[in-house]
Amino acid sequence: MQKPIAGSIHFDGKNLDAYSENELSKKLSLVLTERLPESQLTVFELIALGRQPYTNWIDKLAEEDLQKIHLAIEQTAIAHLKNNRFYELSDGQLQRVLIARALAQDTAVIILDEPTAHLDMHQTINIFSLLQKLVKETDKTIIISSHEVNLALQLADEIILLTENKVQFGTTEALISKNAFENLFPNNLLKFNKSLQQFVIHKN
């Protein structure tokens, strides 16, 4: 993770720098955009790696670890894939597996970096609704960075809107009522439609 350029990040009441790798790994799990290096890991092995913060020195999976792994597999509905190698999966399937890995890590917070970057519309909605379901079922905080503003408007509980010179944070409704989205994009191409709560293509 990058060091802050200015200021400090506090997580759970404590400066992020004060956490050891192992402490942090039990509180925060990640789903990154970077490609996994080529290997022959199976889906199950990949998800089981999520248990590393809790396993002993030789990485033996205890009963509790297996339970968490199976729960994660169930929650992401990928039981049929678990013996496949991860390189055999489609991008959408792989994203589900990576989310399962983060779930198995059993942290209160999961951060996903552009989870739908390589996905088509159907798969994108698929992943987003999975994440929404997980928030409701597991009581986890899931933070997503995304360019899919329209989907975020429909699905997110709260939005942090990063623009060139302003950071705005609030529930979706609060941000809409504050007109935070009006000037997000150049107005001649995309226009925010307040009644639809969506961006629409601007037609003259």
Binding site: L24, S25, L28, L32, Q52, Q105
Partner: peptide
């Protein structure tokens, strides 16, 4: 899984 994931795993 790469260095970033390894780090996030403690």
């Amino acid at each position: 899984l790469g260095e970033n994931y390894a780090k996030s795993l403690g």
